[in-house]
Design a protein around this nucleic acid. Structure first.
Lengths: 349, 349
DNA sequence: CAGCAGTTTTGGAACGCTCCAATGAACTCG
DNA sequence: CGAGTTCATTGGAGCGTTCCAAAACTGCTG
């Protein structure tokens, strides 16, 4: 009568409910109850089953449970196809939070490299085991993203990380209030005595890109500061940003808020080119708190997204959606936080 | 007779093999064959089944398949619990490659936040649906890692990313030949005319850390260059690295090879502190090709790990292991590549 | 101590699929 | 033209679990 489960576990897979039942001298159904509805059992029997489970190293067979209960306890997560160069340091923390939170609710995360609804999949591949999953988390949802519509049509519960900027609003989403982040950045800079605060963003038109610009603008207006001629745009690339920020610096900006750390780095370069020192001569604030931000000198002040919280909220919303399919869509907008480093910490106007 | 699957797909989940069989006028088994062993069917019947599948929007129920075939077509991947500060830009690309390759073989990746075998899980939680997975990929395996032993004892196929540096060798692994990377770095620097090439590594003792040092050493010896007094060590932190590299610079090193980009960045700082310019006055080579490397100025030359290849190999080895359990352990050592940027591109000794 | 309500346990069926062995159809050949 | 051979299809069983309804045990009352 070995107390160690490991000796048996070697030939595992064959330990089933029935095995445990025989050992404990009860029916399979009772064992099932012991596991899923312990309040039904007489304490004495429950203990007996517990012991049998222990001794045999029994573990329920997920597939069988899934088949019977019609719930896989799996959440799909669609990874965005990342280009070799473009790193998304974002995903790491987010995914971790996602997995962790899901775990706590008894769910696991299943990775989908090409998320359902993405193009290029013919009818057969596309439909492959979608229903091995109870719900879906989409990330990097953007304009013209068809995944939401695709999932909704099929009645699969889902939550997006990223709001829908255009078109019909469908489904739940969690997002970070970028405007609030740049707004806070302006507040911070104003507090340091800055007046001529410029903004370097992405080309207009994308919702994601316009959002931070909005925050900058409204904060500037609130302080009755001028925004005209204080805004430039560039693609997310150092050289372009460096070029784009030039006119702003020429016009005498004492601070620049950028829509990404990459753009902010372009500012660094532009400043150095002019023999000016970031943080000392001109304040710079980035966006994203990428791993690089802390490594720069001076350290880059930047708006950090609460990725862990986003992950948690995604799971929370998804679980809610799964429990009541028909409920009205829910949206969660989370506040980012300003991480202050040397690139914007002391007044020097 | 709607040609569109979508109209029916709304009430999906109820479309089963039997449904398709009725529609196509064959037996359920034949439909199954059409899907899994098409060569058994007469072309005419196969077409008939195909059409029925199409019209009904049928998709096989993974759980049922799993239950019957005893193969979940799932590969577990243990995420390392990442501390909030510590970013692992590595994981992103690797995970993507993993998922992609698995996909192509008809497998999916299932995330495990706390990988089996990690401490802190009591007997019940720990065993939770391990056998919902056909095999396991472990990453960041290190000294004293008990996960391998744990999995082996339970007869679960697995592959580690990272070799086992100590103890009994168990299981397959894929790793990057760090020594070869630093060796190549030395070659490159020697080619540029450098002679006093120093090495900045992590504290001795960890296999992972000693590996790059080894490559540096052997390459130096090959060129009859001195290694004495040319080696320093530091924890993976800018300030420490900056301090640690001091003596090497004082001793007149014209080039420094670092065991990580973080350490290399410490060199940058130390050099600037002495009013020297990285890449111009002293060459610096890092390790990892982190996203930051390309963003620095000068761009950091660094040893890049072939993460995509590692991901692919992991899956390949795992599939091989799963197909023949008893085969002797297989190990794959991949060559990293030197990415040359401005921090080490022109001789200036 | 039969009767009844309440609690605890149980047998049987079903989830959707694939394995296995057996049937039927078509085809070859002595 | 019946026997052997191959090829295509089929029925039945079973994977391990939970649902459902019925059965067996309590304990309490009249």
């Amino acid at each position: 009568m070995p107390r160690s489960p490991n000796t048996r576990a070697a030939k595992a897979g064959s330990v089933t409910l029935a095995t445990v039942a025989r050992r404990a001298g009860v029916s399979p159904q009772t064992v099932s109850n012991a596991l899923n509805a312990r309040e039904l059992l007489r304490p004495e029997n429950l203990e007996r089953v517990r012991r049998a489970v222990d001794e045999l190293g029994y573990r329920p067979h997920r597939a069988a449970q899934t088949l019977r209960t019609r719930s896989s306890k799996l959440i799909g997560y669609g990874i965005r196809p990342t280009a070799p160069g473009t790193s998304t340091p974002v995903m790491d923390r987010f995914l971790h939070a996602l997995s962790q939170t899901a775990d706590e609710a008894g769910y696991r995360i299943l990775l989908f490299t090409s998320p359902p609804g993405s193009a290029g999949l013919d009818g057969y591949e596309e439909l492959l085991d979608l229903h091995s999953v109870d719900g879906f988390v989409l990330s990097g949802t953007d304009r013209g993203d068809q995944r939401q519509a695709w999932l909704e049509k099929r009645g699969v519960p889902f939550v997006g990380f990223g709001r829908m900027w255009s078109g019909r609003q469908i489904g739940d989403w969690v997002d970070v209030d970028g405007a609030s982040g740049t707004d806070a950045a302006v507040e911070h800079l104003v507090g340091l005595g800055h007046r001529r605060i410029a903004f370097l963003g992405w080309p207009r038109g994308s919702g994601v890109g316009d959002d931070p610009a909005m925050g900058w603008q409204r904060a500037m207006r609130r302080h009755s500061l001028p925004v005209r001629g204080k805004r430039a745009q560039s693609v997310d690339d150092i050289a372009s940003a460096q070029a784009a920020v030039g006119p702003l610096l020429d016009a005498g900006a004492t601070a620049v808020i950028a829509a990404s750390d990459m753009l902010a780095l372009g500012c660094y370069h532009a400043l150095r080119e002019r023999r000016a020192v970031p943080g000392t001569d001109v304040a710079v604030v980035g966006f994203d708190d990428s791993p690089t931000a802390v490594l720069l000198s001076p350290g880059l002040s930047t708006v950090a997204q609460p990725l862990e919280a986003v992950g948690r909220e995604c799971v929370r919303l998804l679980l809610a959606r799964m429990s009541e399919i028909g409920a009205p869509p829910e949206h969660v907008l989370l506040e980012p936080s300003l991480v202050v480093r040397d690139s914007a910490s002391a007044s020097d106007d």
